[in-house]
Amino acid sequence: MRNWLIVATFFCLWLSTQLPESIQNSLAYFLILTFGVLHGANDIQLINKVKKDKQKKNNYLYMYVAAIVGVSLLFLVSAQWAFYFFLIISAYHFGEQHFAQKIKVKSQFDWALFVSYGSLILFMLFYKKINKVEMIIVEFTGNNTLNIELIFWVSAGLFFGVITAYAILKKIQLNWFAEVLLLGVLYVVFEVASLSWAFAIYFIFWHSFPSIKDQLYLLYGDYNKKTWLSYLKSSWLYYSISIFGLLILYLVFKERTDYFITLILYLLAAISFPHIVLMSKLENLKANSES
């Protein structure tokens, strides 16, 4: 899968040099609203996979809905702290999805690897598009107290320190050339592409597609056209609800926002936390079944 992802990323990088920013943004929104939202739209099926007991399934479903409501309320109480919380859990989620299956010996410090890698990706993008990002953060939270450059370098230093320690202790198995190549390619993408398009290239090709692949293997035991169709069939309801929620957000905030990506971030933030908790449980389940 990695090979075609690299090819797709280079193709999208080439598109970045050929298309105006408005077209790049439209493509980004399309990918985020299709595959991006889709990768978290089968959580109900995944809950059924994780929880065999009916009562436990219902309890987990109630907790799932409560988490969405809770995060939404947090944004109403303090958009700034909700945004910081969203960044941290997103960073953890990106790092966990990327490294969980590559760790040979789990430890209590795996969270540091996950958060530092996810933060490196996010803040590398923010650093390369710092002016636009700062305007969006102000629109999103009301002010900007993030030192983006400092957080980028701290995240980079922490990640390389942790990954070096894991390598020395032989806790992780990596294709080091592929990992360095990916970071280099993403750096160039973040430099050349528009903010929305750059985020979409990473989020869709290097997070959503690999996540969907893992979900297909867990749910159906294989990754092919048939399982893709089954996945789409079982996820359409939650996907439709997510898109409907975005439409409501757009109607409510369309006069108060300059950036459509801000509305997408609101949607992703609301549905991300319970999805991240669920996927983390699935990673633990997978690790326990393989040990």
Score class of each variant (00 low, 15 high):
residue 100 A to R: 01
residue 62 Y to V: 00
residue 55 Q to S: 07
residue 92 Y to Q: 00
residue 104 K to Y: 06
residue 131 N to M: 14
residue 70 G to W: 02
residue 108 Q to K: 13
residue 79 A to F: 05
residue 107 S to V: 11
residue 77 V to L: 09
residue 80 Q to D: 10
residue 159 F to T: 10
residue 141 T to V: 10
residue 68 I to N: 10
residue 53 D to N: 11
residue 142 G to S: 12
residue 94 F to H: 03
residue 66 A to Q: 02
residue 112 A to D: 12
residue 103 I to R: 05
residue 134 E to D: 14
residue 152 F to G: 11
residue 81 W to R: 03
residue 64 Y to C: 04
residue 91 A to E: 01
residue 114 F to K: 02
residue 160 F to W: 15
residue 109 F to T: 14
residue 135 M to W: 13
residue 143 N to Q: 13
residue 78 S to Q: 06
residue 158 L to Y: 09
residue 141 T to P: 08
residue 130 I to K: 15
residue 98 H to S: 04
residue 105 V to M: 12
residue 93 H to Q: 01
residue 139 E to P: 07
residue 71 V to N: 04
residue 103 I to G: 06
residue 154 V to I: 13
residue 128 K to T: 14
residue 138 V to Q: 14
residue 134 E to T: 13
residue 127 Y to M: 07
residue 140 F to V: 04
residue 101 Q to V: 03
residue 136 I to E: 14
residue 125 L to H: 06
residue 105 V to P: 12
residue 94 F to Y: 05
residue 90 S to D: 00
residue 154 V to W: 08
residue 155 S to N: 08
residue 73 L to R: 09
residue 92 Y to C: 00
residue 95 G to C: 00
residue 52 K to M: 01
residue 67 A to Y: 02
residue 55 Q to T: 08
residue 53 D to I: 05
residue 49 K to L: 15
residue 96 E to W: 00
residue 109 F to W: 15
residue 125 L to G: 07
residue 151 I to V: 09
residue 97 Q to G: 01
residue 110 D to H: 06
residue 74 L to G: 11
residue 155 S to T: 07
residue 62 Y to G: 03
residue 116 S to N: 09
residue 154 V to M: 13
residue 107 S to W: 08
residue 89 I to S: 01
residue 136 I to D: 10
residue 157 G to V: 09
residue 150 L to H: 13
residue 152 F to Y: 15
residue 150 L to A: 14
residue 56 K to D: 04
residue 121 I to Y: 06
residue 134 E to R: 14
residue 89 I to V: 05
residue 49 K to A: 10
residue 58 N to T: 06
residue 64 Y to L: 03
residue 103 I to F: 06
residue 83 F to K: 02
residue 123 F to A: 14
residue 102 K to I: 01
residue 151 I to G: 06
residue 149 E to R: 13
residue 159 F to H: 08
residue 99 F to S: 05
residue 153 W to Y: 15
residue 112 A to M: 14
